[in-house]
Amino acid sequence: MTIPNRWGLPDLGLGMGLRTVHYQHILEHWPSIDWFEIISENYIDTEGRPIWYLDQIAERYPIVMHGVSMSIGSTDPIDVPFLKKLKALAERVNAVWLGDHVCWTGVAGINGHDLYPVPYNEESLRHMVDRIRIAQDILERPLVLENPSTYLTFRSSTISEPEFIARMAEESDCALLLDVNNVYVTCRNHDLDPNEYLEGFPYDRVVQIHLAGHTDKGTHCIDTHDDHVIDEVWELYRRVMAEAGNRATLLEWDDKIPQFEVVHDEVRKAERFRQAATASEEAGHGI
């Protein structure tokens, strides 16, 4: 079956993260890829080569903006000028949607440039819901927020991460990006079952899926985006496709980035799961 997202945002197919090492390949070959996702901050406050490439690529491919420093969970004041820059960039590249992470990245004016967790409790929930609403008002579009990879649990957490995210999305009316690699990494780090994590995940708010590789340190996993997707993560993806229906799916590869075709081949592996989801849906209709 397919659970449509409540905004009717399109299934863009299979996409790749746009990375500098692939710019030239893309302009020379205009590869057959459905869409690209950009790290928003890489194209803000610069008028150098990256934005020149992006302008050309945005003429031919749908672009999704994915940020890493909105810091929606921070207790610092909302950075309105930054949101306005995001909005301007979204208009410039005709972004299909834009988003960030369920996290904070800095406080007291200092930026840690990492995705830090909030305690999952009522106080954090109220705080984030309020800020998401403000950000969405400024951006004039729904935010698409991603479940982060996390490495610690606060004692003051009283709600599970998936429940927190579901309530946050419902109460702020935001959209979600479900990173299935992050589900795996977070569950490994918190001794949780990723299949239990996905039980009841609000698929009607999911407009995008992330896939990526990670580093298994034995005692924990780090979300390094530097390798192929492992089989267990593909299995989670298969389950999500089967339960939610096809969603715009993106492969992230951010470190030790191989040639374009290697990354492209990796994201193409998702096709078999998407087709399986379609076949399952058709079979369902036939019964």
């Binding site: 840690g112 990492d114 490495y151 610690l152 649990t153 606060f154 918190h190 005692t219 924990h220 780090i222």
Partner: peptide
């Protein structure tokens, strides 16, 4: 009192993951 341990890692080790990533990155 603030950060829970996991089965494999102490509270301090879990916090240190973020400290390592901050400087590494």
């Amino acid at each position: 009192n603030v950060v829970l341990p996991s089965k494999n890692m102490s509270s301090e080790e879990r916090l240190q993951v973020y400290a390592n990533m901050y400087y590494w990155r």
